[in-house]
Lab assay of single mutants.
Amino acid sequence: SDGDWICPDKKCGNVNFARRTSCNRCG
């Protein structure tokens, strides 16, 4: 959805909800 972002860590790449301020997978 709008504002969702992909974790910049190449080893992670998790797609996070826009409301999250840190990655839901790797923190």
Rank of each mutant, 00 (worst) to 15 (best):
F17T: 15
V15L: 07
D9G: 04
G27R: 05
W5C: 01
N14G: 07
R19K: 13
D9A: 08
I6L: 15
N24C: 09
C7H: 00
F17W: 10
K11G: 08
C26R: 01
G3K: 06
P8S: 03
C12P: 00
R25Q: 13
C12I: 13
G27E: 08
N16D: 05
C7I: 02
W5H: 00
P8W: 00
D9H: 04
C26Y: 00
K11M: 13
C12F: 05
D4W: 03
D2G: 08
R19G: 12
P8I: 00
G13C: 09
G13T: 08
A18G: 11
G27C: 07
K11P: 09
C7V: 02
C7K: 05
C12A: 04
G13L: 14
C7Q: 02
N16L: 01
W5M: 10
K10M: 14
T21M: 11
R25S: 10
R25T: 10
K10N: 10
P8H: 05
P8L: 05
P8T: 05
C26M: 02
K11S: 07
T21C: 11
K11F: 09
P8E: 05
G27S: 04
I6Q: 15
R25A: 11
C12S: 04
N16C: 04
K10F: 08
K11V: 09
I6R: 12
A18I: 06
F17G: 14
D2T: 15
F17L: 11
K10I: 06
D4L: 06
C26Q: 03
D2F: 12
C12E: 04
N16Y: 05
K10R: 11
C26P: 01
C12N: 02
S1P: 00
R20P: 09
D2N: 07
D2L: 11
C26W: 01
G27D: 05
W5E: 03
T21G: 08
D9L: 04
S22L: 07
R20H: 09
S22N: 14
N24K: 12
N24L: 13
N14K: 10
V15E: 10
T21L: 11
F17D: 14
C12R: 02
K10G: 10
I6G: 00
A18H: 12
S22D: 14
K10C: 03
N24S: 14
C7L: 01
N24E: 15
N14Q: 07
F17N: 14
G3W: 14
N24P: 09
I6K: 02
R25W: 09
N24G: 14
W5T: 02
S1V: 11
N24Y: 09
N16A: 02
I6D: 08
D9C: 00
N16I: 03
N14C: 05
I6N: 07
D2R: 08
G27T: 04
T21W: 08
R20A: 14
S22W: 05
W5Q: 02
S1K: 15
F17Q: 14
C23W: 00
N16F: 03
V15G: 06
N16M: 00
K11W: 03
N16H: 02
R20N: 07
R19C: 01
T21P: 10
W5A: 00
D9I: 10
S1F: 08
G3E: 14
D4T: 14
D9E: 08
S1C: 12
R19L: 07
S22Q: 08
V15I: 07
T21R: 12
S22C: 14
K10H: 09
V15R: 10
W5R: 02
V15T: 13
C23V: 02
S1N: 15
R19E: 15
T21H: 12
C7P: 04
N14I: 02
V15K: 04
N24Q: 13
S1W: 01
C12Q: 05
K10V: 05
G13H: 06
C26F: 00
F17M: 15
C7M: 03
S22M: 11
D4R: 07
W5G: 02
R20T: 13
G3P: 01
W5K: 00
G3A: 10
R19I: 00
R20D: 11
D9S: 08
D2Y: 15
C12D: 05
D4E: 03
A18T: 08
R19V: 10
T21S: 10
G27V: 04
C26L: 01
S1G: 15
A18E: 12
G13E: 02
N16K: 04
D4Y: 11
R25K: 11
C26A: 02
C12K: 06
C23L: 00
T21F: 14
I6H: 05
K11D: 12
N14H: 15
C12V: 05
S1Y: 10
R20F: 05
D4Q: 00
D4C: 01
G13Q: 13
D2H: 09
C23A: 04
G13S: 05
D4H: 09
K11Y: 08
D4G: 09
P8F: 01
W5F: 01
R20G: 12
G3N: 13
K11R: 07
C26G: 03
D9N: 13
G27K: 07
C7E: 01
G3S: 13
C23K: 02
G13K: 02
K10D: 14
T21I: 06
I6F: 07
C26I: 00
N14P: 01
N14F: 15
C23G: 03
R20M: 12
D4M: 02
C23N: 08
